[in-house]
Amino acid sequence: MMSKFKLCNVGQGLFYIGEINLSNRKTFKFIYDCGGNNISGAINQHITQDDVIDMLVISHFDDDHINGLPDLFNKVSKIKRIFIPYYKGIENYLLLMSYIYGNGATFDKVDEIILVNSSEGVEDEQDFNEIITEEVPDINRYNLPNVKVGIIRNKVLSVEKKWIFKFYNARISTDITTVISDINNLISNNNRKDLEELLKLNLNAAKVGLRTIYSNYCSSKYNNSKQNQSSLCLYHAPIKKETPRIHLMLDNGVRFEYYTKIHQFGTILTGDISLKTKKNPRNYNEFKEHYKNEIGDIGIFLLPHHGANNNWNSLILEDFMRTLIFLNSSGLNNRFKHPGSMVIKELQKKRKIVCCANEYLTVEYYI
């Protein structure tokens, strides 16, 4: 049986679902980001209450990539593992916690949170069900009830020797401690000793405080640039190669089907990272170097930052020359003018296939 992948109809945002068929009729289900202006409708359409999510990957913490998480957490049966970017500090862990609890959800259905640092350590392959994690420094005061938290460094994860996953996140400075100090102040102001005690209060004031902490860090104060560049990218591919089939599906049931025979079977998901060399010359080179062994297998490439001109790098078309299909997720008539006209023109000039999801259109493909 073929495995199915969907870039869902969330409008301006990103919600990607993968369902990998394993042995004994089992399915490995993963999600990459969960946000957008139509995220509630997309969750209702593509997620059921019986769903068990084996892997949830959060690229970064902009609202249009995570505003569906509370609905997702409340609806599904279980989330086994959540993967978030890590840079020698627990700010992203605290942002995740702040957003979930601040918006009326909990981690009661979550087994484990894994912080990913791909820039350190020797590359090592591990079975997904036997991931070995390191302890997270300075997390004791911020532990969540009944949720395991750990770090992995530069790991390639395999699922039943059928599918592989490889992460990448850029090295960025970690001099921002605002989140930790604000969390500590919130705990102290409510006369609690730690985060777990604060969460047990279930006070509206605590929820408002957590939402404010998230908003201060991810929106106005830092203008999102650090969050965007810290995006956790994900490469996934089958170990055994077969032929993918592409079709597009409109919400009203009308289907436009396109079939192409390609020889590259990997997908790269890029969040909101910037790969533009003029702004971040080191970042693109490190990204390319990190995936140097996978470049020839990447047939499907998610345009970074919803196809923004300022995040695109024309060198992608040279270095990833065997990549045929480019995906994009953005809202119709959005104020950011995503995807950028320059990006689309370059892709069309190279005769690439561009598949765009929006509020009304879901892109599906099968391998």
Rank of each mutant, 00 (worst) to 15 (best):
G331P: 07
Y291M: 04
K109S: 05
L199F: 06
R192F: 06
M1H: 11
V179S: 04
G253R: 13
E286V: 00
K345A: 12
H338W: 11
I298N: 01
N146E: 15
N191F: 09
K349P: 07
V147S: 09
N24C: 03
F336A: 11
E359M: 00
K6W: 10
L7G: 06
L56A: 01
L95W: 02
F301G: 03
K75P: 00
C218Q: 14
Y86G: 03
S188W: 04
V116D: 00
D124C: 13
I131R: 12
N9A: 07
Y222H: 04
V116S: 01
F83P: 00
R351Q: 13
S3D: 10
R245F: 07
L72F: 04
D272R: 15
G307Q: 12
R211A: 11
S219Q: 12
N67Q: 07
I132D: 01
Q45N: 10
I176P: 02
E125S: 14
S23T: 05
N129V: 00
T177F: 08
S220V: 09
L56V: 02
K261G: 05
L203N: 13
L361H: 10
L203R: 08
K155M: 03
A205Y: 03
H263C: 08
S188P: 05
W163M: 12
F15D: 08
P304A: 06
G121T: 11
T267Q: 04
N202H: 02
I152K: 13
G121V: 08
F61C: 02
M2Q: 12
C34Y: 02
N140Y: 14
A308N: 09
Q229G: 03
G41F: 07
S158Y: 07
I113V: 12
K261H: 10
T178L: 15
L115S: 04
N224D: 13
L144D: 13
G331I: 04
D54L: 04
T133C: 13
M249Y: 13
V76S: 00
F287G: 08
K261F: 12
N143E: 15
G89Y: 00
D63K: 14
R25Q: 12
P137E: 01
F28H: 13
V10R: 09
S40G: 09
C355P: 01
Y284Q: 06
E123K: 11
L317Q: 02
V343N: 01
H65C: 09
E197F: 02
E120T: 10
T323P: 03
S3E: 06
K6N: 10
K162Q: 14
L157M: 09
H290D: 07
F265T: 14
S341I: 14
I84F: 03
S181E: 14
D62Q: 10
Y235G: 10
E125L: 08
H305P: 00
I47G: 08
K221F: 09
V122C: 06
F301P: 01
K221M: 09
P339S: 05
N184L: 08
C356E: 14
E242C: 14
V122N: 11
N189Q: 05
R81D: 00
V363E: 15
T212L: 06
G11K: 02
H247S: 10
K288H: 06
M2H: 09
P85V: 07
F165A: 05
L275Y: 08
W312C: 06
L95A: 00
Y366S: 12
K29N: 03
G266R: 00
K162E: 11
N21D: 12
I31W: 07
V110L: 07
